[in-house]
Design a protein around this nucleic acid. Structure first.
Lengths: 121, 121
DNA sequence: TAACTAACTAACATGTTTGTTCGTACCACA
DNA sequence: TGTGGTACGAACAAACATGTTAGTTAGTTA
């Protein structure tokens, strides 16, 4: 991933925070496009080009960065088919599958909360 | 909060993403110290100085920024007591209280996932 | 009038994330 | 030999988040 300055307060604090399981979980799904991608992949195995097509507003750099990060964090599996042209498919890991219902709860909460906030601010 | 450049791709994309309730929810709890603060406040009304003492490694600037942001997003309530010296107490809103059990699920998931990842990477 | 406390606030510096543009590897097929 | 498609990667720039330091307000007490 991006090279990090191990000595910075920023990075030290991040490590500190990630000791908290809750923060760790949020950290793992916190990248800008991760939830969108997870949501798409959960609905069916997707190849790189599918994602690229569906999310044309995500730059290819971000797309690969987020996918790689999720792969490293054990959320998705990357399957390479040595065809020509090459084919790469992404699937959820069991761990990510367990996460989905929690995300659904978050989604419901978010919807309610947004409505509440809309009312009075 | 920090002034934002309304025209940047960064900001445009953020708005785009926040239309997703899931992303909105994660966005609302996604600040670096928010979960820690929520967790403390949920265990009992806390005054500013309590938080400052407990989290001595959080700079005062960050402390106030995160608190203010959570207040704006309807997660906490800020009560000012016009005593001398002044006293400010923070409490969870009902919405945040509903969020807590979801965060607990996330925490459990995080713990399991961290263990899994520790095993094979 | 000066010192003291709580709870901030402003200005600036650093570091990280995200976005933009261009280029690469691989093999097939014309 | 050149073109085409897929799935990336590298270098750079812009914007944002976080961290550091010093200062502010209001009232009270010495």
């Amino acid at each position: 991933m991006g090279t990090r300055k191990q000595s910075s307060t920023y990075t030290r604090n991040e490590k500190l925070i990630i000791n908290c399981n809750m923060s760790y979980a949020v950290h793992v799904i916190g990248g800008r496009w991760k939830l969108l991608l997870l949501d798409k992949i959960r609905k069916g195995t997707s190849r790189y080009s599918d994602l690229k097509k569906e999310f044309s507003y995500i730059s290819e750099r971000m797309l690969t960065l987020q996918l790689k990060s999720m792969e490293q964090d054990g959320l998705i599996i990357r399957n390479v088919f040595a065809e020509v042209p090459i084919r790469v498919e992404y699937t959820l890991t069991p761990a990510a599958t367990e996460l989905i219902p929690i995300l659904d709860l978050l989604s419901t909460w978010g919807s309610k909360q947004r409505a509440l906030q809309g009312d009075n601010s």
